[in-house]
Design a protein around this nucleic acid. Structure first.
Lengths: 149, 149
DNA sequence: TATTGTTATACTCTATAACTATA
DNA sequence: TATAGTTATAGAGTATAACAATA
C-alpha cells in the first residue's frame, strides 16, 4: 500500500473545484484554524475580537449595532457579549436616549486584551497576506466585499 | 430618534476594513446563510453535501480520504458520516486492502438526495456569481485556493 | 405595532483525548 | 510505532421561538 509518487491524497473532482461557495468554505476553514492557533494563548475567537474592536471604536454601541455590523442574530450577539462580560472585558450600561437599548464599553482588561489581540492579528494577517501581492490583497477584499456589504 | 439620511447602521471602522480575515469571515457567513435558506427543504448542510459529492465521485473512499480533501479532523468526519448514515444516505463497508479502513458508498436515497442538492447548488451558485463577471469568478477562486489547497 | 434585550432550546462544526483494532 | 476508526466530551457559532420592557 505504498503511495505512488503522483498520488494526491487531497485531490478534488473538477466539478466541485468550480463551486465558488466550496472554496470560500475551505478558505474560511484554513483561516479559522490558523486564527485559533495564533490566539490559543489569548483564548479569544474571531467573533469576540471583532466585538471588542467595534466596541472600542464605537463606545456606547448597542447590541443591535454590533449585530448589524457583524451580521449576527440578536441571540448570537447576546451569547458573545455574555461571554466577554463574564471574562470582565466589557460592561453593559443603560442608554439615556432609548430605554430599550444598552450601551457597551470596554473595561481596562478589555482594552488590554484588545491591544494584545491587535498584535496577534498582525501576525495572522502577515501569514495570510504572504500569499498575495498588495494589489491582489485589494482585489480579494473588493471581491469578498460584494458578498456581504 | 429618526435616522438621518446619511446614517449607515452597518458602517465599519477603516482599520477593520483592511483586515483580510475579517472579510473572509463575513463573506463566509453571508454564503452560509444563503446556503442554509436554499437547502432548508432538503435539510442538508454544506459539509454534508460536500461529503455526499465526494463519496459519489470517489466510491469506496475512506473517512481519512474525506478528511484530507475537506480538511477535517477525524472526529469531525465521523460525526458527519454518522449523520448521513443515520439518514440512510450512505453505507460503511469493510476494506479488503486494509482492515483498518472502511469503504463508503452512497445508497439510492443518497444518490437521489445528491441529485436534488446539485440542483439547489446551481441556484445558490447563481445567486453568488451574479455579483461577478466570469473572469472575476476565476480570479476569486484562484485567490481563495491559495489559502487552502 | 415595532424594537431591544433576554432566556430557553437545539443543531452543527470543531477539536482534544483516550481507546481498540490493524498495519 | 503508526494509522484508522471510534467514543466521549466540550466549546463556539448559529438560529428559532417566546416573553418583557420600551418606543
Amino acid at each position: 500500500m505504498t503511495a505512488k509518487p503522483g498520488d494526491d491524497d487531497a485531490h478534488l473532482p473538477d466539478d466541485l473545484e468550480a463551486v465558488v461557495g466550496f472554496h470560500i468554505r475551505l478558505a474560511h476553514g484554513a483561516v479559522y484554524r490558523h486564527f485559533t492557533e495564533t490566539f490559543a494563548d489569548l483564548g479569544l475567537t474571531q467573533k469576540q475580537v471583532s466585538v471588542l474592536w467595534l466596541v472600542e471604536s464605537t463606545p456606547g454601541i448597542a447590541q443591535t449595532g454590533l449585530a448589524a455590523r457583524l451580521q449576527m442574530d440578536r441571540a448570537t450577539t447576546m451569547a458573545i457579549v455574555n461571554r466577554l462580560q463574564a471574562r470582565g472585558y466589557l460592561l453593559r450600561g443603560k442608554s439615556r436616549d432609548d430605554g430599550r437599548k444598552q450601551t457597551l464599553h470596554l473595561t481596562d482588561a478589555g482594552r488590554a486584551a484588545l491591544a494584545e489581540a491587535r498584535r496577534a492579528i498582525e501576525a495572522h494577517e502577515a501569514w495570510l497576506k504572504s500569499r498575495y501581492t498588495p494589489a491582489e490583497v485589494r482585489t480579494l477584499i473588493e471581491l469578498l466585499s460584494r458578498l456581504h456589504g
